[in-house]
Amino acid sequence: MAMSTDTRPDAPSAPVPAQTWTQRLANPTQFMKLSDWLLPILSVLAAAVIGYGTYLTFFVAPPDYQQGETVKIMFVHVPSAWLGMMGYGLIAVSSFGLLVFRHPLADVSAKAAAPIGAAFTLLALVTGSLWGKPMWGTYWVWDARLTSVLILFFLYLGLMALRSSIDDEAMAAKQTAVLGLVGVVILPIIKFSVDWWNTLHQPASVVKLDGPAIHSSILVPLLVNAIGFSLLFFALHMKGMRNEILRRRVKALRLAEVERASHGREAATAAG
């Protein structure tokens, strides 16, 4: 952590009790300061890694002996699916942070993560569908993995719809957090759907106890893309959180202005 409490200009002279980094980040100003220099770094890294991953995808990774070039859909499909699930995990952790610890940035984080996670989930569904046509002969099958990911997408839609339908922001935050925590049961269902049911979708082949079941010529581009997509996710998430914080500040300033204006009018009418 770059910022220690005593370098702040307004640091009190009395010794400040040691803060954990989550507590320090709970101050939106500190978060804005940190993200101000972290965000450009993340963005450049994301662009570079995804660029390298794209190069590996098209020029280095060999076509599969059965699937041909279509195997390369995997380099988008698998990272998107991982991030779709991770996004929901992030929402669940943020919801927990809001409901239990009242962490002031938790709701900002949950709100920013929802559209990004939904986009990655949709991307996983669409690329999976495009991959399914040449491989399985159909764009869609009602298989356990596909169905559970579709439900994940619906949960994202429900979260966003619930938030937008409640006017009071503090209440919307809490209600959305309750739903976010309830919906977290979908994550283990997605993860284990391929083991519990006999499905068309192949079981886990990268994250396994006895090592990945994929040849390294395919695995390396996949992991590079996964890292690149994750960096993109975090960059977008951080940008979304910054926007949300700024939006709230603008709203608070506007409210203050309206209040001042109405006081001014009251004073004027009282004087006149």
Partner: peptide, 27 residues
Amino acid sequence: SIGAALTLNAKRGGLLLALLVLPLYVP
């Protein structure tokens, strides 16, 4: 009941309730 509690103060609560609750009914 979770969905009903969540949508108490929501606008267009009925439609929203379907979107929230039906995914939970899938299992």
